[in-house]
């Protein structure tokens, strides 16, 4: 399979799953059926846990295929993450926090690691 064909298939597979997830509540409760309490409960507690899990996954992915030492012992991730969280608490401007953190991270990994 060429990379282009793979990319097309992957996009379609990911698209079908994503759209099915978005449509799920509308399909499940199309009439006037009430939403079961357990689903409502999971819907309220799950988002922060899922995001937190993905953050850990991002850190793990940054070290996939290279040693902890060659990636800078987690220092680039730690420094940039502290900057992002601190800026977000202080300024409450998502775009500023993301750009500042990403630029700091790029500067560190391109020049010091």
């Amino acid at each position: 399979m060429s990379r282009e064909v793979y990319f097309l298939c992957m996009t379609l597979v990911a698209g079908v799953v994503t759209i099915a997830l978005r449509a799920f509540p509308f399909l499940m409760f199309s009439g006037n059926r009430p939403v079961p309490t357990v689903i409502r409960y999971i819907g309220r507690v799950l988002p922060p846990a899922a995001i937190a899990m993905l953050i850990v996954y991002c850190y793990c992915s940054a070290y996939q295929g290279k040693s902890f030492a060659s990636g800078g012992f987690g220092v680039p991730e730690l420094a940039a993450s502290v900057l992002v969280v601190a800026l977000q608490i202080w300024k409450r401007n998502p775009l500023l926090s993301i750009i500042a953190g990403t630029v700091l991270y790029m500067v560190i990994v391109q020049n010091f690691v």
Binding site: C58, A62, S81, S97, I98, T102
Partner: peptide, 11 residues
């Protein structure tokens, strides 16, 4: 890292 930063902001 922009993706990690996005998640961090949301969290």
């Amino acid at each position: 890292f922009a993706m990690t930063a996005l998640f961090l902001v949301v969290l």
